[in-house]
């Protein structure tokens, strides 16, 4: 890859790193990443991957920006209230780095469209805020063989894990089925410290860059749990479940499922 003078300056601190160099930066520039959710997690993930020079970043979200998002969703502003989140984020990211192609996808993922939506991308990032989407994204990535960097946040705690279909565990190896809607915190109960998605999203973006570069050890086979109140990181081993309903050799789930009813997401 021939860098322009601007690109040499922009990516200089990457190119200096032995693990990146010009060749690694070229890999980053040709990577295509899709981020599910342009909210708390999607904003920092997209921000840092844009800054890093990821060639193409797609953003999937069906919601519009609201005032209550601004406590944590750092790609949006008072000027973008009422605008689709994907358009608001595209504007912010494009201003940061015009090298990056941002693809705004204002849609809700379903069992009928998700495989087509993720098919063009190398890596999927889950920053969704609800269990139906989380399971749909996991199952679709397993079926399509797409690496998935999954993140979740609630109150003062966040989790990150990296799923490489065919190699490590999947989300259903961890939790086979979604919790019943009554056990999921309602909108009134589900607060979140505004800075928490910055920590978790930063970890997700790091995982994505490691996968693109083929360097280091991804969080495969591990669930990383961050407790902001105690300031602790715990790494829990997650073995591949040999009888996992979706990623085992004899899966019982062979078609995608939409779990729609009774869930209330934290918008």
């Amino acid at each position: 890859m021939d860098f322009t003078d601007d690109q040499l300056q922009r990516y200089s601190r990457h190119i200096i790193l032995p693990e990146v160099g010009g060749k690694g930066q070229a890999k980053i520039a040709s990577a295509k990443v899709i981020i599910i959710g342009a909210g708390g997690l999607g904003c920092p993930v997209g921000f840092y991957l844009t800054a890093a020079g990821v060639g193409t970043i797609a953003l999937v979200d069906n919601d519009d920006v609201e005032m209550s998002n601004l406590q944590r969703q750092i790609a949006h502003s008072v000027h973008s209230i009422g605008m689709p989140k994907v358009e608001s984020a595209k504007k912010t990211f494009s201003a940061l780095n015009p090298d990056v192609t941002i693809v705004p996808l204002r849609t809700r993922l379903t069992k009928d469209n998700i495989i087509g939506v993720i098919s063009e991308y190398d890596i999927v990032v889950d920053g969704s805020d609800n269990f139906p989407t989380r399971y749909l994204v996991n199952d679709a990535c397993v079926m399509a063989g797409k690496p998935l960097v999954s993140g979740a946040i609630l109150r003062f705690e966040g989790q990150v894990t990296t799923i490489i279909p065919g190699q490590g565990h999947c989300y259903r190896c961890l939790f086979e089925v979604p919790p019943p809607p009554g056990l999921v915190p309602s909108c009134q109960e589900a607060g979140v410290l505004g800075v928490l998605p910055g920590v978790i999203g930063g970890l997700q973006a790091t995982e994505v860059l490691k996968l693109i570069l083929g360097k280091g050890m991804p969080l495969m086979g591990d669930l990383l749990i961050y407790d902001a109140l105690k300031t602790t990181f715990r790494k829990v081993k997650v073995p591949k479940n040999p009888s996992c309903p979706v990623c085992s050799d004899n899966p019982v789930i062979t078609e995608l499922v939409d779990y729609n009813e009774g869930y209330c997401s934290l918008q």
Partner: peptide, 14 residues
Amino acid sequence: CPYTFIKAKLAVES
């Protein structure tokens, strides 16, 4: 610096 080193590093890489 650091563009001196970056140019040299990219040249060696190629």
